[in-house]
Design a protein around this nucleic acid. Structure first.
Length: 317
RNA sequence: GGAGAGGUAGCGAAGUGGUUAAACGCGGCAGACUGUAAAUCUGUUACCAACGGUUUCGGUGGUUCGAAUCCACCCCUCUCCA
């Protein structure tokens, strides 16, 4: 294998509010590297207070990429992000600097590291068609259709999971190829980078408390106003930028679907659940070494040393 | 003081003699995830040495082969009238 030729990255993952960004900035600074943020929501410029982006102070300490990439319009997707990130990794390497890839979006990390199958991007026309049909015949009938055209894919998808049923049918309709066959061929077998991966954690209660405190702050420091502004600008409340955690609940409140307090509670709960889903995703990755987050100076020093060794060692395992 | 209503698993709420360890919802926990991923979906949730066992439906006692469900007394909560 031409493993040494792969660009090396330090990968930092973890649930929201686990302290990834702090840790990554510190690490990037210590290693003289640059950061790439892997976050499906922080790429949207209009989302400011609700996505806990790196602060101006943090951005001053170290170059941080992957933030505020797009405004409104067609949303970003995993493949697009992965391409962007790999391009950035090359650029950073060409500057002779190391790369800290940090964030909480599991699929984006995976797409960046292993790539995705060869398949066309979303096709809104086809999806509109599929959705119209679904509304007519129901999800079970659509699932039955998937069972016909791609039984293997259907076997991997829960019968109610519309998002995946739609994607599988979309791929089949636009390419004539079965999604499952592309997946089998792909299998996340190849890597585009060589990585040293760390996962940030904290005790569940600590994590949850931090999530709640952070939402209280966001809620009272502009999240509502920001959401209102987007609604005023005519953004669809169940389309992407407004589907982000916090914004979605703020929109519910603003549209009179629930009280202010209810919306805030809901936002907290959904964010806690999100953190759990992130944990589930990352726990499945056996290459990740978990770090309990308020890291001591000694522990941080050790991690730095290991990162340096990884980055300089030509024939590491 | 009088008249009603009610107390069911973490919470809300069904159940009114056996097939009920107890529907359903919420919350919790766990899982899946290949171009929507802060999305979408699945499982599980009295307790245990667990394909078997133990203890549950305010409390105590009773009726019955058998009760969360029937009877008696007691405790508590809520509403209305004083």
């Amino acid at each position: 294998m031409s493993r040494e030729r792969l660009p090396k990255i330090i990968q930092i993952v973890g649930p929201t509010a686990s302290g990834k960004t702090n840790f990554s900035v510190r690490l990037a600074e210590a290693l003289g590297g640059e950061m790439i943020n892997v976050d499906s929501m922080q790429v949207y410029r209009p989302l400011a207070v609700g996505t806990d982006k790196p602060t101006a102070a943090q951005c001053a300490r170290v170059p941080i990429h992957g933030i505020d990439l797009i405004d409104f319009g067609p949303p970003m997707d995993a493949s697009e992000f992965a391409e962007y990130a790999r391009q950035k990794i090359r650029e950073i390497a060409s500057r002779g600097r190391c790369c800290i890839v940090s964030g909480g979006t599991g699929l984006y990390h995976r797409a960046l590291v292993h790539g995705l199958i060869e398949a066309p991007a979303r096709n809104d026309a086809v999806r509109a068609e599929l959705r119209a049909e679904r509304d007519r015949v129901g999800i079970p009938a659509m699932y039955a259709r998937l069972c016909d055209v791609d039984p293997v894919a259907a076997g991997r998808i829960y019968a109610q999971d519309w998002v995946r049923i739609e994607r599988a049918l979309e791929v089949y309709m636009t390419t004539g190829k079965r999604l499952s066959e592309s997946q089998d061929a792909h299998g996340f077998k190849t890597s585009f980078v060589s990585r040293l991966a760390f996962g940030c954690t904290a005790e569940r209660a600590v994590l949850y408390a931090k999530i709640e405190r952070r939402l209280d702050e966001m809620w009272h420091s502009g999240l509502i106003e920001e959401t209102q502004a987007m609604l005023d600008a005519g953004l669809d409340a169940d389309q992407l930028p407004l589907k982000a955690l916090g914004y979605r609940q703020a929109a519910m409140y603003l549209r009179g679907e629930c009280s202010d307090a209810e919306a805030l509670e809901l936002a907290k709960r959904e964010t806690r659940r999100f953190a759990k889903r992130q944990l589930t995703w990352f726990r499945a990755d056996s290459e990740i070494e978990w770090l309990k987050m308020p890291l001591s100076d000694e522990a941080f020093g050790e991690i730095c040393a290991r990162c340096s060794a990884f980055l300089t060692d030509v024939c590491e395992a």
